[in-house]
Write a protein that binds this DNA or RNA. Structure first.
Length: 352
DNA sequence: TCTGGGGTCCTAGGACCC
DNA sequence: TCTGGGGTCCTAGGACCC
């Protein structure tokens, strides 16, 4: 007996959240975006998308396409709160929930669905629940595995409900252009088009030798997915593996005072995130981009596990001094990883 | 048009050890 | 004197996603 997986995705999440915050924005084209020079659109609602406004588009460009675009600012605390509600609602229906990002979850409903006459009835119930409790529209993909569920929810947005069966892969998935496939980004798409693999169907039926150079170890998995097969399990209880804070400077600079000031501020923000997550980090990484937007990272182990900004800052500056002191810096970032969870440490302390 | 910010996973290459 | 081969760990970079 096969599985039944839902992929649930909040439509235009940040933009929808802004509409909850300020209902007067309903029916207006909105872009979630910090209103600074050089900023780019984080999320546009569907009205703005009709004008061609897209995520990652520079705001100046978006305003040319849609002059009456409403720019909302970014309110991460609000999105986080709503995201938690969303996940909690998903977990009402099954224990097997993978939180894939702030606005999407995979649900294994193989068992849960037995209480319903038709799979669609459970999906309708979940969607109605989310609408009533949080006030947001979602798209749901229903399929026998993770990959197909994800592709299914992408097929119909917004507010879609799409069943994708294994036997429908040839008719519904194969005609799609290769870049629509989840897991194929710009680089792979370019490579594949060059060797005349233009659709998901082309990938499904190609000789693996032609694509091993680009997909390496995941070659077989990619071909299987294009054929609608995916035996990967949902990852329940994902734990955070890294945290980072970064900022793009107004103007590139090599001014040491300014750089250390910005890095210290980022380290303080990082400390707060570590406290919120209850983690101590054993590793610190700095990221810099120069004025050509070339990106570099450097990592070092911390002498002791820490969540203190002073320690992050001290070591971040060591990394900076040793590697980038001459650089004209456009972006600065600091991150931490290799976590020890604080409650685990206190458990261990009790042993002594 | 001049390019955000926060993540995960994978890979290549070097260091090191036996 | 010349110099094997395998395993593991670490680091930096890249691809991808939202």
């Amino acid at each position: 007996m096969g599985k039944i997986i839902f992929h649930i995705d909040i439509n235009a999440f940040f933009a929808s959240a802004e509409t909850l915050r300020d209902p007067s924005l309903r029916n207006k084209p909105i872009a979630v975006c910090s209103n600074k020079r050089g900023s780019v659109v984080t999320t546009a609602n569907y009205i703005a998308r009709d004008y061609g406004v897209r995520s990652a588009m520079p705001l100046v460009e978006a305003l040319k396409l849609c002059p009456h675009l409403v720019v909302t600012g970014v309110h991460f605390d609000l999105y986080e709160k709503i995201s938690e509600q969303f996940v909690a609602l998903c977990k009402k229906y099954t224990d097997i929930v993978e939180v894939a990002s702030v606005d999407e979850c995979y649900l294994d409903v193989t068992e849960a669905i037995k209480a319903y006459k038709r799979p669609l009835d459970l999906a309708l119930t979940v969607r109605k629940d989310i609408k009533k409790t949080i006030g947001l529209d979602v798209s749901i993909g229903i399929a026998p595995n993770r990959f197909l569920a994800k592709m299914a929810s992408d097929l119909k947005k917004p507010n879609g409900m799409t069943v994708l069966r294994q036997k429908e892969v040839q008719s519904k998935l194969w005609p799609l252009p290769i870049e629509r496939m989840h897991g194929v980004g710009t680089k792979s798409a370019e490579y594949l088009k060059n060797i005349n693999i233009l659709t998901i169907g082309d990938l499904a039926t190609c000789d693996s030798n032609r694509i091993v150079a680009i997909f390496k170890k995941s070659t077989d998995a990619m071909i299987k997915r294009a054929n609608g097969e995916d035996d990967s399990e949902l990852e329940v209880d994902q734990i955070v593996k890294s945290l980072s804070q970064s900022t793009t400077l107004m103007n590139a600079t090599s001014d040491y005072e300014e750089i250390s000031f910005v890095l210290e501020k980022l380290c303080k923000e990082l400390q707060q995130r570590c406290l919120d997550e209850g983690v101590l980090a054993q590793q610190v990484t700095i990221t810099v981009k120069n004025d050509d937007f070339q990106s570099y990272t450097r990592t070092m182990k911390l002498p002791n596990p820490s969540n203190m900004h002073q320690e992050f800052f001290e070591n971040a500056m060591l990394l900076f001094d040793a590697n980038f002191s001459e650089m004209n810096v456009k972006l600065l970032g600091v991150g931490c990883s290799q976590f020890i969870f604080r409650d685990i440490i206190s458990e261990q302390m009790k042993l002594f």
